[in-house]
Simulated assay, not measured.
Amino acid sequence: MPRRPRTLTDAPVRLVKVREVTVPLPHPLRSDALDNRERVLEAARTLFATEGLNVPMREIARHAGVGPATLYRRFPTKRTLVVEAYAEEVRACHAIVEEGLADPDPWSGFCRVIEKTCELHIDSLGFTEAFMAAYPDAMDFAADRGRMLGAVAELARRAQRAGDLRPDFVPDDLVMVLMAHRGIHATSAATRRATSRRFAALVIQSFQTSPTRAPLPPAARQAPPPHG
């Protein structure tokens, strides 16, 4: 019986499901201190997403509307700030792979990992940098990345034994996918996400033993139309 073509209709990644505070606070913070902390984290995520991890700490403080002293009191190093800013995304990465491993159809689970990982990374240049260890002084994701790639390797072996995943796939291919995916740039979030979905579909077809050639998601315009 022919395999049903893969579609990109799975539910989107919901980071709210994995939200929690990862670094215990030494004592309860006043409401204004908590508010400052959240503003700093939100500013950091915003600037990391658009400018990468090299954005200066003073710029993050300015964007958050707090003084540098307030920022450094809560986050004494860039590493500390990046750890807190991306704790949710790290847990989401693990949840995505665990969901893929739990799928009784290993090919379906493998495809879900590709789709949802791209979806998670598309709105955050900074997270991709940190996860790929392109900014090791800020945060070392080596252990998390190693666990994730180990789980992907197990899922890939299952899909290969089922005959759906090409036999020459190796987990480092997923790293290559994320590096290429990081190059997606667009003027709007909607265009970035549409391009990411199409990219994921192309990647999945390239990994399949016998590509189904299912219709790709619609292409998004990458540049404004020429004048005249």
Rank of each mutant, 00 (worst) to 15 (best):
Gln160Asp: 08
Glu154Ala: 13
Phe131Glu: 00
Val175Pro: 04
Val170Phe: 02
Glu98Cys: 11
Ala87Ser: 14
Val152Phe: 01
Met139Phe: 15
Asp105Lys: 06
Phe127Gln: 04
Glu129Ile: 01
Arg79Leu: 03
Ala138Lys: 01
Ala138Leu: 01
Glu119Gln: 09
Trp107Pro: 07
Pro167Ser: 14
Pro136Tyr: 08
Lys116His: 13
Asp144Arg: 07
Met139Cys: 15
Ala159Val: 02
Leu174Tyr: 08
Arg112Thr: 08
Asp105Leu: 07
Glu98Pro: 13
Val175Lys: 10
Thr117His: 13
Ala85Lys: 04
Asp140Ile: 00
Gln160Ile: 09
Arg91Asn: 09
Asp172Thr: 15
Ala153Asn: 04
Glu119Thr: 06
Val83Gln: 12
His94Asp: 15
Val97Leu: 01
Met176Thr: 13
Arg157Ala: 14
Cys111Leu: 05
Arg112Phe: 02
Thr128Pro: 15
Gln160Leu: 05
Ala153Gln: 03
Leu155Arg: 05
Leu81Gln: 03
Arg145Trp: 06
Val97Ala: 01
Glu99Gln: 12
Glu88Pro: 05
Glu154Gln: 15
Ala133Leu: 12
Cys93Pro: 10
Asp103Pro: 09
Asp168Asn: 06
Arg166His: 10
Ser108Asp: 15
Val113Ala: 04
Ala130Asp: 11
Leu101His: 08
Ala159Leu: 01
Leu120Ile: 09
Val177Ser: 08
Asp164Arg: 06
Asp173Lys: 14
Ala162Cys: 01
Ser108Leu: 14
His121Pro: 02
Ala156Val: 05
Ala162Pro: 00
Pro167Cys: 03
Val177Trp: 08
Ile122Tyr: 02
Phe141Ser: 11
His94Glu: 15
Cys111Phe: 04
Val152Gly: 00
Ser124Asp: 09
Arg158Val: 03
Ile114Thr: 04
